[in-house]
Amino acid sequence: MKTIKRALRIHRIFISQEFKRMMEYKGDFIVGVIGFLLVQLSNLLFLWIIFGQIPDLVGWSVNEVVFIYGMSLIPKGIDHFFFDNLWSIGYFIVRKGDFDKYLTRPVNTLFHVLVEKIQIDALGELIMGIALVCASVPGIQAEWDLWRIIAMIAIMPFITLIFTGVKTITASVAFWVKRSGNVIYLFYTFSDFARYPAKVYNRLVQNVITYIIPFALTSYFPALFILKGENPLFNLGMPVLAAAVLMTAGVLVWHRGIRAYESAGS
């Protein structure tokens, strides 16, 4: 209990420091948020043009596809907002030897890295994700009972951790090879598959994005339950399981990696 309290207090201090830093560069804040909004807008235009040509995509209507798309952005945005610092580990903190800083402090290194920074840019994804989910819901004929809405909100922290887990594991690679930014990038890009119903892909890809790099669990499978009420045990249980497995693996790999870490010369 005491450790959790201490962790929360440290978190609060870091965040308030971050806000001070951000207030110094207000322009950056707008540029980043608009940038990420534009990325999503471009993908949406693509969807919109495509749906001008066809009535439905492998049996899913426009609104359902937009719902899945929006659903995929929310956990991605939350992870991006809170845990963006892992990218810096992969790209330069380890390579430049700056990781020494974390080793000298009386806090868990992974916790320290995760809470040190927040990334306002992520609001671009979050705003868009929430807007898309809200906009698509009236057009979907589903039984909206309270349980499904509760399930949708309750599953969010877990599917967020799927992103964080994948990033933690791939960022840790930097401890051995110095620079793993593009390794993170490669595996993170698999989340692009989560934008559309998994039915679109062939069997092999479906299996990969369900069981190996499980980004289909972040949007498509929860949506199967929320929209169609199908198989709650698998559609909600698997994301929770995947989050637990990935985060555990992440923590283990991270601490193994620290043992292999060598600081950069002088």
């Binding site: 439905d56 492998v58 620079r179 593009n182 990038y185 692009d192």
Partner: peptide
């Protein structure tokens, strides 16, 4: 590093490939 980056880029291409193949099947 560059190879990993290119693989990531190629992956986005794959997503688009599957979307188009679904689109042409649906139309």
């Amino acid at each position: 590093n560059w190879i990993f980056f290119m693989l990531g880029e190629a992956l986005s291409c794959f997503v688009t490939y599957f979307i188009w193949s679904a689109v042409y099947r649906s139309g």
